[in-house]
Write a protein that binds this DNA or RNA. Structure first.
Lengths: 163, 163
DNA sequence: ATATAAAATGAATATAATTCGGATTAATCA
DNA sequence: TGATTAATCCGAATTATATTCATTTTATAT
């Protein structure tokens, strides 16, 4: 099975991504040491990865409970297609509490991940923000009881240098 | 409606979190300028937020497609409870391709977010890794066609300094 | 008020990021 | 194949930043 990889990322780029995914604040010097390269060379590569948008963002994962967000829910919904599907999705994505919006295959149209303080504020959100955007045909809200893993982390392939 | 906030985070902490959430690699100096404080004071706060585990990780968001991960799926499943619910969830979370594992309310038990190269490798993953962990009672896989928003970003409240 | 603790400051020092000229390597094409 | 070009890398110099710490300020509690 051929894993037709990435655009032009060599094994050094992948190693950089692997390290920075685990710790976005790793210093160039450390990075360079890990890779056994000069810091300037590594920096150049990082800048290029940023330019190419391979690196999308450096972000900080924050404990949601610490900022008062105790509720996580996934909302699977179907909406009337007065606007295009993507247009509606874009509207949904503008809502702050909405963390993710996916257009999905199958019966429903959208899968939305939402984080709020509690179930009351979730209902409030749906009543106001959601309803203003589109006419909801059907909706199914799944409340998360416990999150065991939650990492954006990707499995970055080892470079298969099968020449 | 009282938004009973966080543990002991004041408005400066929240501001730090807001800034670092957007850019984990912001320098202390910049942070300090934004907050109109001395860098050393800001640094101290950041270290404390790390210790308190309010800051969970500094991570880099990487374009999944760039590393060959073209498929995103949400799997909602019910499993036999030979082991406890959380134990099974923990097993699932050990699978590299599994990005998120949530224990959910309702008919199903788990909601799992998975990223693979393609649908073939997703099937492969389910056949091998998943089946080894537990006996699946029912499973429903939702394929994502298009992701419009995907941010861990939390809505960090402005400090309501309603004394 | 006064003692105590928590945070903030500013200056000094240690580390790190960034720049850039030149060397090296890799890729391209005649 | 060999020449040309482009890409990458290196190392030293410079600039910027992180980190430490003694002191001052602010907040808290008795």
């Amino acid at each position: 099975m051929i894993v037709e990889n990435n655009i032009n990322l060599d094994h050094i780029d992948l190693a950089i991504l692997r390290l920075m995914q685990d710790n976005a604040r790793i210093s160039n010097v450390h990075l360079a040491k890990e890779l056994e390269m000069a810091p300037s060379a590594v920096l150049e590569r990082v800048k290029k990865l940023e330019q190419k948008k391979v690196i999308q963002q450096y972000t900080t994962r924050i404990d949601p409970a610490a900022v008062g967000l105790k509720l996580l829910a996934f909302i699977s919904m179907k909406a009337s297609h007065s606007l295009g599907c993507t247009t509606t999705a874009l509207e949904l994505s503008k809502i702050e509490e909405v963390q993710e919006v996916h257009v999905i295959a199958g019966e429903d149209c959208y899968l939305v991940k939402v984080r709020t303080a509690d179930s009351a504020s979730l209902m409030e959100l749906m009543r106001t923000s959601f309803s203003k955007i589109t006419t909801i045909v059907s909706i199914r809200t799944t409340i998360v009881l416990e999150t065991v893993k939650e990492q954006q982390q990707l499995v970055i392939p080892e470079n298969k240098k099968t020449s």
